[in-house]
């Protein structure tokens, strides 16, 4: 589903963010991308979304070399990748329902599909009673659920989460991880960039570790750090 071949990224001013990374994430896998700040996690994620171009190497997403993708096709690439963020990025002046529907509206989905899918996905994340609430009326965990609903409402094959539990307390984090695992079980490939030890250790999923831009570990049922 996601394959990197000898990918390096050097930013202007010769800052090396990623060094010769090769890895392969299969369909329906659940993968943690771990490493301290500055290890290259964010660059990794940004390149998958084509927000950044690799300096060297090739990236395949859903079987396509995204380096060959013309600029105007980038929005269509992004429709295959649902995104979840540490800071949720919800629109403050729209309700829960409108925030989720927005993701479908702006890619031109017809109204009948929107009115059918939005309540369904909100029910899946367990927020049916908050359908008409505004984001500021929700707790952090609830906001993150809305964000996940928005990422998944278009049914993308890949879910990308950048520090999804970074702003949440441990028990809320566990709820969010359960939700992400459920989505994974229903067939979504999930990649989570995190430095939350507890979350990684509890799940016992595949762990890819970056350190100083290099891939230092790729473990099938890993924990956050050795020792």
């Amino acid at each position: 589903m996601i394959r990197l071949e000898n990918v390096s990224k050097v930013y202007k001013g010769s800052v090396v963010a990623l060094r010769d990374i090769s890895t392969d994430i299969q369909k329906e896998e659940f993968v943690f991308l771990v490493g301290s700040s500055g290890s290259g996690k964010s660059t990794f994620i940004k390149m998958l979304l084509k927000e950044e171009e690799p300096s060297e190497g090739t990236i395949y997403v859903a079987g396509k070399d995204i380096g060959q993708l013309p600029r105007w096709r980038v929005p269509y690439l992004r429709r295959n990748i649902g995104c979840v963020f540490q800071d949720f990025k919800l629109l403050a002046n729209k309700t829960v329902r409108e925030n989720v529907a927005f993701a479908l509206e702006v890619i031109g989905r017809p109204k009948n599909i929107i009115s059918q899918r939005v309540p369904a996905i909100i029910e899946l994340v367990g927020l049916t009673d908050k359908l008409n609430s505004m984001p500021h009326e929700l707790s952090g965990g609830e906001q993150q659920r809305v964000c996940i609903a928005r990422a998944m409402v278009n049914r993308p094959p890949i879910l990308l989460a950048d520090e999804p539990t970074g702003n949440l307390d441990p028990s809320t984090s566990a709820d969010i991880m359960n939700l992400l695992e459920r989505l994974n079980e229903s067939g979504t490939t999930v990649l989570i960039a995190t430095h939350d030890h507890a979350v990684v250790d509890r799940s016992r999923k595949r762990v890819i570790e970056l350190d100083g831009g290099k891939l230092v570990r790729d473990q099938v049922r890993g924990v956050y750090g050795i020792g």
């Binding site: 929005p75 429709r79 995104c83 990025k89 629109l91």
Partner: peptide
Amino acid sequence: RKEIGIMKLVGATNWFI
């Protein structure tokens, strides 16, 4: 700008924005 950022992330085309 936040709205525009989200539109781009969920894959809205530039013309749609």
